[in-house]
C-alpha cells in the first residue's frame, strides 16, 4: 500500500460548539514523503500530538483534508473506512506500556493483528516475529505483561504495534523515560525496521540528536500549525530562528558553532561523525586555515 501523506489546510477544534471549544490545529499543510523517516518537532502543546491523531483517523479534521495513499480523510469520513485504513498504520504512543491488558505477553501482541482480521496462526506468527525483533525472549511469552520490568513492558507494547506489520509507523516520543541504553536500543530497532521493510516512519521527538541522526525530512510545529519543513540541514541552518522557537540544536552542531566563534569554520555539521571527520582533517593539516 502506498503511504504518502498530505495535509491540506487542516484545521481542528476541540469540543466544537461548546463553551469549552479550543482550537487545536489551523491551516496545517505539509507532506510526509513515502518510505522515508520524517521527524516532527515543536514545543510541548504545539499541536504535534493532535496532528498524529489525524494520521490514524482517531480524530477527524474539522476543516480541510488529509490524504493518505488513496484514502482521503475529511470531517465526513465514515468509521468503516477509518477502520480499514488503521489496519495499515501502527501507532506507538508516549508510554505505550499503558495499553497492555491481556493475560499473557503473547496474547497482548496478537491482539492488534487479530482485531484486523488475522487468523489465530497468522497472528501468533506475527507476534512471535515482533517479539523477537524487540528482543523479548520466548520464556516470557506466557508471562503476564504486568510482571515485567518497565523496559520490557515498553518493548512488548511496541511489539504489539509492529506485529500489525504497518506500512506507516508513527512514534510519539517512544523513548521517553527510558535509560540511555534502552533509548539507543529502541532507536536502532526503529531505523532497522524502516530500512528492512521500506515503511514510512513518523517520529515525534524533543531530541534533536535523533533528528540529526535518523531523519530524512523534518516538520516543525508551533501554535497549532506547521511553521517550517525540509531536510535536517535546512532546518538546523537557521540557528537564530530555532532559538526564537525555543528549539534545540543537535550537540554536534552546537559544538561546531562554538568552534566557529573561535574562528574555526566547519561545513554542514549535524552529527558527530561529520564533526569528527572534519576536525581530524584539520588536525592532520589536510585543510588550509580559513
Amino acid at each position: 500500500m502506498v503511504m504518502a501523506i498530505n495535509f491540506d489546510q487542516v484545521g481542528f477544534t476541540y469540543q466544537p460548539n461548546t463553551p469549552f471549544a479550543t482550537p487545536g490545529l489551523h491551516d496545517v499543510s505539509f507532506e510526509i514523503p513515502e518510505g522515508k523517516f520524517t521527524a516532527v518537532i515543536g514545543h510541548t502543546g504545539s499541536g504535534k500530538s493532535t496532528m498524529v491523531q489525524h494520521l490514524d483517523g482517531l480524530v477527524l479534521p474539522t476543516t480541510g483534508k488529509v490524504t493518505m495513499g488513496d484514502q482521503v480523510v475529511t470531517a465526513e469520513t465514515k468509521l468503516k473506512e477509518l477502520n480499514e485504513m488503521r489496519a495499515h498504520i501502527g501507532l506507538v504512543f508516549q508510554f505505550p506500556e499503558a495499553q497492555l491488558f491481556e493475560q499473557t505477553v503473547l496474547k497482548d501482541v496478537m491482539f492488534g493483528p487479530k482485531n484486523f482480521g488475522a487468523s489465530e496462526e497468522d497472528a501468533q506468527a506475527a507476534a512471535e516475529a515482533a517479539l523477537k525483533k524487540v528482543a523479548i525472549s520466548p520464556d516470557l511469552y506466557e508471562r503476564s505483561p504486568f510482571e515485567l520490568s518497565g523496559g520490557q513492558m515498553r518493548r512488548v507494547a511496541i511489539a504489539g504495534v509492529i506485529a500489525m506489520e504497518p506500512d506507516l509507523l508513527i512514534l510519539d516520543e517512544p523513548t521517553a523515560g527510558l535509560d540511555p541504553q534502552g533509548q539507543r536500543e529502541l532507536m536502532t530497532l526503529f531505523t532497522d525496521l524502516q530500512k528492512e521493510r521500506h515503511i514510512t516512519v513518523v517520529l515525534i521527538t524533543h531530541q534533536m540528536e535523533y533528528v540529526a541522526q535518523y531523519a530524512d525530512h523534518v516538520v516543525v510545529f508551533e501554535h497549532g500549525t506547521v511553521v517550517k519543513s525540509g531536510s535536517p540541514t535546512t532546518i538546523f541552518a537557521d540557528e537564530e530562528w530555532l532559538h526564537e522557537k525555543q528549539l534545540d540544536v543537535p550537540a554536534a552542531k552546537q559544538f561546531a558553532d562554538a568552534l566557529a566563534e573561535k574562528g574555526i569554520q566547519l561545513h554542514n555539521v549535524l552529527d558527530i561523525d561529520q564533526l569528527a571527520d572534519q576536525l581530524a582533517a584539520r588536525l592532520n593539516g589536510e585543510v588550509d586555515h580559513v
Binding site: 504512543f93 499503558a98 492488534g112 484486523f116 504495534v161
Partner: peptide
C-alpha cells in the same frame, strides 16, 4: 482518552 486511542489504533471498535 489516551488508552482508548491506543486501543483504537490496535483495531478496537
Amino acid at each position: 482518552q489516551s488508552i482508548m486511542n491506543a486501543q483504537r489504533a490496535r483495531g478496537v471498535r
